[in-house]
Amino acid sequence: MADETQLRGLLLKGLAGEESAHRAFLTEAAALLRGFFRNRLRGAPEDAEDLVQETLVALHTKRDTYDPAYPLTAWMYAIARYRLIDHLRRLRRRGVHNSIDDLDIGDADPEYEASDARRDVAALLERLPEKQRAAIRLVKIEEKSVREAADATGYSESDIKISIHRGMKTLMRLMGEAGAP
């Protein structure tokens, strides 16, 4: 798994616009986050995977909040911890009382292949406003360029970019709401 220096390099390249570096960053981060959340939510691997996905979306949409003067892992785990606390609060608010102390203990294996997350991100995408959904579908799923997506929908290029950006933020919020069973 990647160390601090590698991860930091990948994120900074991603911030500069290098897509493959950003993808590699998210992939490495996912592995570390899986270990982090499984250690803390033993016996609830689907919840852990939900949180991995939630945190990945947060790392992605908020990637500009990383301050290169400080360790990348501090930034990443601060966000992961925030998502975890938010998750536990949501559970409590919904009256799910199974304390994490009672969950069965098993060693979290960060290399373990991702189990399916409990919630379906694809279904959440369907709940986005039409314009945001169209922009994300065309550019992110059908691999069209922003230009092509703009032509296909009649929106301007910056409209498409803003819709994708807003859509990702809305997605993060929906993930939060749909987080607990």
Binding site: G14, L15, A16, G17, E19, S20, H22, R23, L26, T27, A30, E49, V52, Q53, L56, V57, H60, R63, D64, T65, A114, D116, A117, D120, V121, A122, I136, V139, K140, I141, E143, S145, V146, K161, I164, M168
Partner: peptide, 22 residues
């Protein structure tokens, strides 16, 4: 959705980001 798929979705077309917080 598998996490790998989500990563693909997030990364595709991810352009540069300005850091102009100040």
């Amino acid at each position: 959705m598998k996490t790998g798929r989500l990563i693909e979705l997030l990364a595709r077309g991810a352009g540069p980001r300005r850091q102009d917080h100040t």
